[in-house]
Amino acid sequence: MTDSTPPSTSSRTTGDIVHLDPWQDLRALTRARIGLGRSGNAQRTTDVLAFQAAHAQARDAVHTALDVDAMKAALGEPCLVVHSRAPDRPTYLRRPDLGRRLAPESLAELKKGDWDVVFVAADGLSSVATAEGAVTLYQEMKKRLPHWKIAPLVMALQGRVALGDEIAQAMGARMVVMMIGERPGLSVADSLGVYLTYAPRVGTPDSARNCLSNIHLHGLKTAPAADKLAWLMKEALSRQVTGVALKDDSPDEHSLLSQGR
C-alpha cells in the first residue's frame, strides 16, 4: 500500500513491483478488490478505471438488446420470438409486472400443442448471458431428454421469469424452463439463471419454482447445469411438482431474500 504516491497505471504490473506487493498472496484468497492502495484517501487511477470498465460492461449487459438473429443462426431449427408487455428497456426496468405478461399480439401467435416442456430464452437483466448460454443449454437438454415432447424454443424480449408461465399455458406445455440473464455484477456480467416450473400458469408463485443460478464460464458450467436440470425435470414429471417439494434435493437452491437482501 502506498500513500501519496503519484498514480501509476503500471505499478502493479511491472516485474519489479509484483514481487514486492504485500497483497499478492492475499488476493488469491478472494476476488474482492483488496489491497488497492491509495493516493491520499482516493483510489488510484488504474483502479478507478478498472471499476468503471467493469460497471460499463455490466450496464451494457443490461441495456444491449438480445441478438435474436445470432441466436437463430446458432440454433439452426425453427423457433418462436415473443414480446412481453414492456415495450422498451426503461419501461421494463420500472414495471416488472409488464415483463411478466405477454404482449397481446404475441399471445395470439402461440398455438396450443401437446408438449412435456417448453424452453424459453429471455433477455432478463443480461442479454449477453442469454445470447452466450441459452442455445447451448437448450441443445444439451435435448440430448439428455430423448423421449420428451419438447416444444420449439421460444425467445422472449423484455421478459421476467414469470413470463414463461403464460407462454407455457398458451402452448399447452406441462412444464416450463425459463433461461434468463441474471442481474449483472461487476465481476460477472454474463450469468444465466434457469427456473423450472411444473404446471405453470399466470400467477404461479415463485415458491413453486426450482432455480439453478450462476451459470457462466467461471461459475456453474453448462454441462453440469444441464445434468442437474435434467434430474430436476425428471423428478418434476414423476412427482408432478416443483418448488419447495424438490428443494431439499437441489443443492443450488438459495434465496437472497432469506438473509434480508
Binding site: T30, R31, A32, R33, I34, L36, R38, N41, A42, Q43, D47, F51, A54, H55, R183, P184, G185, L186, S187, V188, L256, R261
Partner: peptide, 19 residues
C-alpha cells in the same frame, strides 16, 4: 473493498470513500 460486493453483486462505498 473497492466498493464492489462480490457476493451480493451490487456497488456500495469503498473504504477509500469513507476515508
Amino acid at each position: 473493498p473497492g466498493a464492489d460486493d462480490i457476493m451480493l453483486n451490487y456497488q456500495s462505498l469503498s473504504f477509500h470513500d469513507i476515508l
